[in-house]
Amino acid sequence: MDLSERPRVLKHQVVRSRLEELLEDLVEVDPFPAECELAESFSVSRETIRQALRELLLDGRIERRRRMTVVAGPKILQPLSIDSYTEAARERGMEAGRFGWTHMTADAWLAERLALSVGDPVLQLERVFTTAGVRIGLDTTRLPAHRYPDLEPDFEVSSSLYAEFARRGINFGRTEDTIETALPDAREAALLHVDARTPMFVLKRQSYDEHGVLIEFRRSLYRGDRMAFTQTMYPD
């Protein structure tokens, strides 16, 4: 290989290697040195430190907790399936914490997704998921209100919404899921106790019953530094 074709090792990658050496002597939730301290210790710019820290953050080696950076535990692996996110989350130690109900009317965008007319009533449930006291996901479910009378007083928000659907005789026929990446907006960052640079997975789901009638439109936001998603596939 010609020297000019060899991969170039960037300064922040060298710094990252040295930061990984620091991590070997630390355990989960130990505080990680601040940017200014690391920049002075390694005699590099703070921007170089930020780049190295950003990569460690994406890999789930460290996490930001408000104004602190701490050593992270293993990422939570979440399987992708048609089943309830809530039940799967609970099996992995997550719980529904903060929640809120909102009564809305469908605008053109929401009416299209919920197969409603503009102005029809919509019921929204928003839940924040936590694990070990750390906020890790924000789930927003929008429902055609006419299909779920008395849902708000009847439903225990820490339980599975899908179990409540089944109790009402609503059975899933199919789901249409998409996964994207994004950064949180200011409100989302505040609800999840992260800064606006934290990478997020965005899972969007439209669910239909066995008759093809829409059940829900769901948008779930999960911290990319703390979550990973898995799926088992088989050949036809």
Results as ranks from 00 to 15, higher is better:
216 E>F: 00
155 F>Q: 12
37 E>F: 11
154 D>W: 03
49 I>W: 15
182 A>Y: 00
182 A>I: 02
156 E>N: 10
39 A>T: 13
34 A>L: 13
79 P>I: 00
133 G>L: 00
203 L>D: 10
193 H>T: 10
29 V>L: 13
112 E>Y: 01
211 H>R: 06
140 T>P: 12
34 A>F: 11
45 S>V: 13
189 A>Q: 02
163 A>E: 15
55 E>C: 09
210 E>G: 01
129 F>V: 00
51 Q>C: 10
189 A>M: 01
158 S>I: 05
175 T>K: 13
127 R>C: 05
219 R>M: 01
140 T>N: 11
102 T>S: 11
47 E>W: 12
4 S>H: 14
128 V>E: 09
80 L>W: 06
21 E>V: 14
36 C>N: 15
79 P>Y: 05
117 S>I: 02
130 T>W: 08
170 I>D: 02
125 L>F: 02
31 P>M: 06
215 I>H: 05
149 P>M: 06
41 S>G: 08
175 T>P: 09
49 I>M: 14
144 P>A: 09
171 N>A: 04
190 A>V: 03
78 Q>R: 09
31 P>W: 07
196 A>M: 08
165 F>R: 11
236 D>Q: 12
70 V>A: 07
20 E>W: 05
34 A>S: 15
187 R>S: 04
138 L>S: 03
130 T>R: 10
131 T>F: 06
102 T>L: 04
84 S>F: 05
122 V>L: 07
4 S>Y: 15
118 V>K: 08
224 G>A: 04
23 L>T: 02
160 S>G: 13
116 L>Y: 06
18 R>M: 15
34 A>W: 10
7 P>F: 07
